[in-house]
């Protein structure tokens, strides 16, 4: 009320400019008050949100209840429960399994970044243009073709046992290092293809624009193409990393003790499978934060660029 009268006098007092002026200061408008219509709409939207939340909760509970009764009501449930979900065995397995997880995490921490760098490199080589690079391109293509098709477990056995058999000077016999190398070789072939898909999805006009401001081919890739390409393939990369996390357990073929191997040892001494369930849940718990972080990261990137108005 007072604000309105103040601004009116502001306009009328100076009275300069052409007759019918006061244009410079713009139109004096009362402060905005939400209309009945807006309030009604918002109330309606709120009620819809509430309703869908109720429906979602109810249907989730119903499904959970059905599953619960079907499983616990089955004839073999008591025996199954004792064999797979025994709290006592779970507790005693926890410490060795967690100990084993350290190896899984170490392998992931070293192999993950190595794979991403190597994959990106192979993808960059595969997308090189020009006849000069033909040999390089062929090599990268052959690498991807071969190692993507070659079963990981056989590759692991070959490297973990084959490399020491060569009795080379100065080459490690450590099954963990060799197992890690096998993982890197196999996964970088997959990841290279993911990156290549991303690189090729960037519209050619972007390359044209980058080259036109004088960027070299390498600079174009580094500053224009790859940032867009990587953004697009983040979900696929997270997929591969989650898969890698689980496959780090395969180094047990060389005798390394990771979470799965530790659980196996427990199982072998008791014939109770609960430790394996514990290890399995551990992998799930490890994967979830990674996925959430990647989701958050990509959403944040999208928000920064979006125009608003999501259809």
């Amino acid at each position: 009320m007072s604000e309105q009268s103040v601004s009116e006098s502001d306009v009328s007092v100076p009275s300069v400019g052409p007759p019918g002026g006061s244009d410079d200061t713009g139109v004096v408008r009362p402060p905005y008050v939400p209309s009945e219509r807006r309030l009604a709409r918002e109330a309606y939207r709120r009620s819809r949100t509430r309703r869908s939340a109720i429906v979602a909760t109810a249907s989730t509970l119903a499904v959970a209840a059905v599953l619960f009764f079907v499983i616990t009501g089955s004839p073999g449930w008591p025996v199954t429960k004792k064999t797979f979900l025994d709290p006592g065995y779970a507790r005693s397995a926890l410490s060795p399994v967690l100990h084993g997880f350290v190896l899984n995490l170490e392998l992931l921490a070293v192999c993950g970044p190595t794979i991403l760098v190597l994959g990106l490199l192979i993808a960059a080589v595969r997308t090189l243009r020009g006849p000069v690079f033909l040999p390089l391109r062929l090599l990268a293509t052959a690498y991807v073709d071969f190692f993507r098709g070659f079963p990981l477990i056989i590759l692991l056995l070959l490297i973990v046992f084959g490399v020491p058999a060569l009795q080379l000077q100065g080459v490690t016999n450590d099954p963990i290092l060799l197992g890690g190398a096998a993982l890197v070789i196999n996964y970088s072939a997959y990841v290279a293809e993911v990156f290549r898909a991303g690189i090729e999805s960037v519209h050619p006009s972007q390359r044209a624009a980058a080259r036109s401001i004088g960027l070299t081919y390498a600079q174009t890739m580094r500053f224009v193409v790859l940032p867009q390409a990587v953004r697009r393939v983040v979900p696929a990369l997270v997929n591969d990393m989650a898969s890698l996390q689980k496959d780090t357990g395969l180094v047990y073929v060389g005798g390394a003790i990771d979470a799965v191997a530790a659980a196996h040892i427990q199982v072998a001494s008791s014939f109770n499978y609960t430790p394996l369930v514990v290890a399995g849940l551990g992998f799930v718990i490890l994967t979830i934060p990674m996925t959430r972080y990647a989701d958050w990261l990509t959403r944040r990137m999208d928000r920064r660029r979006a125009q608003g108005g999501i259809v």
């Binding site: 905005y32 939400p34 209309s35 219509r37 807006r38 608003g308 108005g309 259809v311």
Partner: peptide
């Protein structure tokens, strides 16, 4: 964009 419902209006119709 509001007319085509690509943006949701805050108020009015």
């Amino acid at each position: 964009r509001c007319a085509n419902l690509l943006e949701e209006v805050d108020d009015g119709a």
